[in-house]
Write a protein that binds this DNA or RNA. Structure first.
Length: 159
DNA sequence: GCCAACGTTGGC
DNA sequence: GCCAACGTTGGC
């Protein structure tokens, strides 16, 4: 068994916010259509923690913490011709795209804005902050995760 | 296999 | 709405 890993998931809060995740409890993380992001989804294991990041909004930053509760399985939207995420090259025998299930763990008592992340020297290597980054799913180092969660007013060991 | 055109992401 | 950065597509 490998050690628990940490991730960052981007979501547009107008579409699906951290409050929405708390409301539904668990959400299938479908619709990812980038191979690099898909490969990260496939690397996720049950129990991995995720920073829930709000993007494309007036207040961008980390809003909460989630947990992977089901490892990668075929994304159902790729088979739905009516979905914008339909992929004609996918078949149930050879699915191209995957999703995981993510559950809410805790909202951050203090929202941690992107601007704030940029100002922390210890987070200079954070993948989210690298130039040109556009991935909606990306890995986070354990020490980065702990630092960000602490900035948000939570004790990492309590998660 | 190259590369221009186009589409998307996402901060500002 | 603008624009930088990146991914994908398709002609050759």
């Amino acid at each position: 068994m490998s050690a628990e890993a940490y991730w960052l998931l981007k979501s547009e809060p107008d579409v699906f916010s951290y409050a929405d995740l708390e409301r539904v409890g668990t959400e299938p993380w479908n619709g990812v259509r980038n191979y690099q992001a898909r490969n990260f989804l496939r690397a996720m294991q049950v129990g991995d923690r995720c920073l829930f990041y709000h993007s494309s909004t007036g207040r961008v930053g980390v809003a909460g913490v989630g947990r992977v509760v089901r490892a990668a399985y075929p994304d159902d939207l790729q088979f739905d011709p009516l979905s914008p995420y339909f992929d004609s090259k996918s078949t149930p025998e050879q699915p191209r795209w995957s999703m995981v299930d993510v559950a809410a763990v805790s909202a951050l008592p203090r929202f941690v804005a992107l601007e704030e992340l940029r100002a922390v020297p210890e987070l200079a290597q954070l993948r989210l902050l690298q130039k040109g980054n556009r991935l909606s799913v990306m890995p986070v180092r354990p020490e980065e995760f702990e630092l960000i969660v602490a900035l948000g007013g939570l004790h990492p060991e309590a998660l």
